[in-house]
Write a protein that binds this DNA or RNA. Structure first.
Lengths: 154, 154
DNA sequence: CCAATATACATGCATATGCATTTATAAATT
DNA sequence: AATTTATAAATGCATATGCATGTATATTGG
């Protein structure tokens, strides 16, 4: 069924790409304006904060955040260099490591959230009703599930 | 009204980011697997093909494609180097130039479309009904309009 | 007409991403 | 136990992106 998309498919596709781009740029710009790290750092820090003191293995972060392995490896380098995470060798698995958030990491994440959240509301949350958000989330959820099951990637 | 987003806002936000990421990766991977240029090239080539023989000014492309100026400048470098576009000085505006698509550019765009289209259908089009696509497009359209009017960027 | 400012585009430098490969260890197979 | 295969993570190299600034021309306002 390798057909070419119909009109409505293309319209929805383009809007999805464009809206995401606009919304993400807005939030990134807000963070930058506040002299805070980029959004990816927030995602990592949040995962780690939720994971508790033991932290997570990089490959777990990789799956959760949909990041490529080499990409995450270097992202962790940067965040570590900034002092927001801590890496140590894994006790049992000699190949691996444990990544945990530091106190400074928690602090910066807490400083990021109001900026992130406000920007999210401003560009997104405030423009849709609760009902619309539910509909949107449901439509996208369908896509995400299909994509995750159909596709080999992740 | 700098409030923190509510639960539904966050759910919808995350899904929007995640779905776009999954869908886009799928299409990019399909193009790469077919030894074709990335999606951005397609967008540029399509705009130029639609624009006709005279082509477009870079700043017009910039607005249409939501690309940063310096970013577009280098993108055009690469596409030009590949022989898919042609740049020449603008006749009246000494600062500017005209960018037009070459025959090879048209050819490659035509080769890209079936791959792009098939991937789009596979990961997106085929998983939503026409009605759902209309709903989705409409919801996103609202966001795009708000973002474009609210925000200074573009 | 000329100085000040704005617009169009390019570029040096830092950072980020992708790809392929490498290193190290673990698990599985014989 | 030795060999193969799989998994965890890092890295050299190419490409892409962002930021600030540079260069050239155009426009505006005195």
């Amino acid at each position: 069924m390798k057909k070419t998309p119909n009109e409505m498919t293309m319209r929805a596709w383009v809007r999805l790409m464009k809206s995401q781009h606009l919304l993400l740029s807005h939030v990134e710009a807000a963070l930058k304006a506040a002299n805070l790290p980029p959004l990816t750092w927030y995602d990592v820090l949040l995962e780690l904060e939720r994971a508790g003191d033991d932290g997570l293995r990089p490959f777990e972060l990789e799956r959760d955040l949909l990041l490529a392995q080499y990409n995450l490896s270097r992202l962790l380098d940067r965040i570590e260099k900034a002092g927001f995470i801590h890496r140590k060798a894994h006790k049992e698995d000699g190949r691996g490591q444990m990544v945990s958030i530091t106190r400074a990491g928690k602090t910066v994440r807490h400083k990021m959230w109001p900026v992130y959240g406000a920007a999210m509301n401003e560009i997104f949350g405030d423009h849709l009703s609760e009902m619309q958000k539910i509909e949107l989330a449901s439509l996208l959820d369908c896509l995400i599930n299909c994509a995750s099951t159909d596709q080999p990637e992740n």
